[in-house]
């Protein structure tokens, strides 16, 4: 059992997680509660990015419709709350069920295609969900829905205060990181990674790759749904805007910026994204332009994203 991280990148990530763990305390000391909000939102997006990374980074399935699951998760809180059902287990169970089913049905169709067709069909399905919620007048349609109370859990699991909600999100993030870490090194994950590089070869080795990829797609959808459930609780106002295709694009940006197919890449990518969005937009209203230029630079020069830069400092034999 080793205690201290061995590589530069692992040291940075460990430090980052420790900072996240004590962040509410720091923000209360410097009396800046706004940053806790910013961080909470960032970590929710990080969970969504981690889930996208599972299919995009490890599995090579580029989905441009992943924000649909954020919306599904959020409405799995919003719609029961509209009828005064606030039980948190109900919200969580419903989120897992609906996002899992949606991923199973749409994934079964999407995974019959490859490359650009896969991108387009995932986009099409997410737009279907988007316009479905736009047209649901009962639940606010375009205007969205206000959630008056957060999901109710037993006292020790309560998410009622901002700090409690933050730790809820942080715990989900840690569980997701650990789960994905185990998953990609287990037999299942090896099949997913192998299929990304050479699906034909995997089939001739005896793997029915479609089943494995579909299962991976469902797991990813469920995790992203849970991120949506957290976002619904966090914003307490939900609208179809949450699942627009631009949000799906931003999730891809976070994954690629941090380093697709790496465990911590999406986390640091999301952190960078939220930071840039927040601070660039304070400097200039044309921040999207700077953002776009950075994206181009990243694609041209930044092989492996932020994780790639960090691991360049790791010594040769410890990398991997």
């Amino acid at each position: 059992m080793r205690i201290l991280p061995r590589t530069v990148s692992a040291t940075v990530y460990t430090g980052f997680l420790v900072l996240l763990a004590i962040a509410p305390w720091i923000f209360s000391v410097i009396d800046e509660p706004f940053y806790l909000d910013l961080l909470s939102r960032g970590l929710i997006l990080a969970v969504a990015a981690l889930s996208l990374n599972l299919i995009l980074g490890y599995g090579g399935m580029v989905s441009l419709g992943h924000a649909a699951y954020i919306g599904i998760g959020a409405y799995c809180v919003g719609i029961p709350a509209y009828y005064d059902f606030y039980n948190g287990w109900l919200h969580l169970g419903l989120t897992v069920l609906v996002s899992g089913l949606f991923a199973l049905v749409t994934g079964a169709i999407c995974l019959r295609t490859k490359g650009v067709y896969f991108i387009m069909i995932t986009l099409a399905f997410s737009q279907m969900v988007y316009f479905t919620f736009v047209s649901l007048e009962e639940y606010g349609g375009d205007d969205g829905l206000v959630i008056y109370l957060r999901s109710e859990f037993p006292t020790w699991l309560s998410m009622d205060s901002p700090v409690a909600l933050y730790y809820w999100i942080f715990t989900v993030l840690l569980i997701t990181l650990f789960f994905i870490h185990r998953l990609v090194h287990a037999r299942f994950g090896r099949v997913i990674v192998g299929s990304r590089f050479n699906e034909d070869r995997m089939q001739s080795l005896g793997y029915s790759t479609y089943r494995y990829r579909l299962s991976c797609y469902v797991i990813s959808g469920v995790i992203c749904g849970i991120a949506g459930m957290l976002l619904g609780n966090f914003t307490s106002f939900i609208s179809p805007e949450m699942m627009g295709w631009t949000r799906s694009g931003e999730l891809i940006f976070m994954v690629v910026m941090g380093g697709a197919g790496t465990l911590f890449g999406p986390l640091v990518g999301t952190a960078a994204f939220v930071f840039l969005e927040e601070f660039l937009s304070r400097i200039t209203i044309y921040w999207h332009l700077i953002f776009g230029l950075m994206l181009i630079a990243l694609v041209l020069f930044g092989k492996g994203g932020i994780h790639g830069w960090l691991s360049a400092f790791d010594s040769e034999e410890e990398r991997g």
Binding site: R182, L183, H185, A186, R187, F188, G189, R190, V191, G194, M202, L205, G206, Y207, Y212, S215
Partner: peptide, 22 residues
Amino acid sequence: ENVMLAVQGSEGHSFRFWASVK
């Protein structure tokens, strides 16, 4: 790792999510 994938493929289903192949 390549050859391990070949061994794994001949050993029944790979819906095992936890134990590391390493």
